[in-house]
Amino acid sequence: MNWFLGLNWGIQWGTVFTVLGTLTAAFLGQVFSHRYSQKREELKLKKESFQNLYSPVVFKVIKYLELECNKHNHIALTNISELEYDEKNQDNEAFSPSMQFNEFFKTIGSNLKYGSLELIREYQDILSKERLNKAFRGYYGGVYIEKIKFCEVFLTDYINLSKEIGIYSPTIKEPVEGALLFTKLKPLIKKIDEDFSSPFLSDYPRFYKLISNIQKKRNFIKRVANLDQKYSRLKNRKDHKFTYIVNYYLDNKAYKLLKDISSSFVDLKKPRYFFENGDKSLYASWETNVNSLLPFYVYKDMLASIKNYKRVK
């Protein structure tokens, strides 16, 4: 034991600090280098996704929405059935929204590895619905609502990726955000009209050009997203009376949003906003459809409980 006590324990602190400093610098260098490499790799993957999947398809998505708009306005004008229109134009790219959708849907399927998880889920949902249609010979119904949801997810991904890689230009901003607002409003109208008593859902494709040309699109997009979140919070609530009251409140908020959109339409007197025979404007049809959603079904004494809405904010 004497040998241990007799050792010279004079510590060279300068050497210790030098060694510790060197090790710390090396460690931090590795951390930051790894972090930088990871971010660079993530940015590279985002650029690949944008170049291979989203950029080549975005204008085809917008074109599809325009063709659906033209189709439904033509049907409203001529009083032919949707089936007749589809059969007549099934091989005409200039008039067939189905051909346009199938074209970019196939492109997305070939590059699905670059898509977001939500886009992949919506893609599979449409495939499942189409298989059911074939199995039941169309009895299961159309897939327009699913297609609109698919377009909404795609456009949302496109905007987010464009911003993240720094190429979201004003040139693309207007048409993309106009299309996104259009796709977001469809599910909102469906929430208000749960029993499908209004013709609004079937008429909705006609109003693409009106909606995509309004001002302050980003503000409306945020309002729709906010309402979607609040509707979602009601799904798991067990207090049915409370849910009913709050749902009524949200329906009124959604109705007000649609009325605000009505007041935001621009250049309503331009010819493209009217039917060819000039007897009824698209704007008037929009107003009629919006008014058909006005909620009348809650008694006035229930409005006193609307303050409970704060519980889901």
Rank of each mutant, 00 (worst) to 15 (best):
F196P: 03
L185W: 06
V153C: 02
L294K: 15
R40C: 03
E66I: 08
F196Y: 13
D239F: 10
L28F: 12
H72V: 04
Y255I: 01
Y54V: 00
L67K: 07
H240T: 12
Q30W: 15
N70Y: 05
E68Y: 09
K253F: 04
L132C: 07
I148H: 03
I145L: 13
L23T: 06
K44T: 07
R272N: 04
V266E: 04
K44R: 14
K280T: 09
N219M: 15
P295Q: 05
V224E: 02
L45K: 12
L43E: 09
S98W: 11
K184W: 04
L83Y: 11
W286K: 02
S96Q: 01
L250K: 02
T24S: 09
L257W: 02
Y139C: 07
Y309P: 05
E174S: 07
I167Q: 03
K238S: 11
S116L: 01
S55M: 10
I211G: 00
T24C: 14
I62W: 00
C69H: 13
Y299H: 15
R218E: 14
P97Y: 00
E130K: 07
I11Q: 09
R137D: 05
L77V: 06
I245R: 08
F101T: 03
E177C: 08
S96M: 04
L227Y: 05
K186T: 12
I120A: 06
